[in-house]
């Protein structure tokens, strides 16, 4: 899977904890690199930061949805934007999860596993409508 965040500490947290869960992790520190990587590697899931300079997370999600090759790739937003409007936007853009920073990285592996399992079980729409969040509860 791919972790996209312009903050290297956040990427590192995700990488270490996801790797510990046996998940192979790719990283991108900006939107353009992320798009390129996704199109090339077609990861199983993208953990996507929203606020990034130039190409932000929303735009990345839009472009992924517009491309038939990438539109099926599940997106979990990982963001500091905690507002209700942002959450709804994430849902509209096809996100299946919405994680608000700060989050507990220890459980991020479980989250990814759960999302992937449920999608496999055909619950993608249910996930999207009830956009998965708060399972990584803030401190």
């Amino acid at each position: 899977m791919l972790v996209v965040d312009d903050e290297s500490p956040i990427r590192m947290l995700c990488r270490v904890n996801l790797t510990a869960a046996g998940i192979e992790v790719l990283e991108a520190d900006n939107g353009r690199d992320a798009l390129e990587l996704i199109r090339r590697e077609l990861p199983d899931l993208v953990l996507l930061d929203v606020m990034m300079p130039d190409l932000d997370g929303w735009e990345v999600a839009r472009r992924l949805a517009a491309d038939p090759k990438t539109r099926e790739i599940p997106i979990v937003f990982l963001t500091a934007r905690a507002g209700e409007a942002d959450r709804r936007l994430g849902e509209q853009l096809g996100g299946v999860g919405y994680v608000v920073k700060p989050f507990d990285p220890v459980r991020i592996g479980d989250l990814v596993e759960e999302v992937l399992t449920r999608i496999e079980q055909g619950e993608r729409e249910a996930l999207r409508r009830g956009i998965l969040d708060d399972m990584l509860g803030s401190p």
Partner: peptide, 16 residues
């Protein structure tokens, strides 16, 4: 928002 990012790093680092 700006505060959440460094907080996430600190909290995440400690949890890890």
């Amino acid at each position: 928002h700006e505060l959440r990012t460094p907080l996430a790093a600190v909290y995440g680092a400690v949890r890890t």
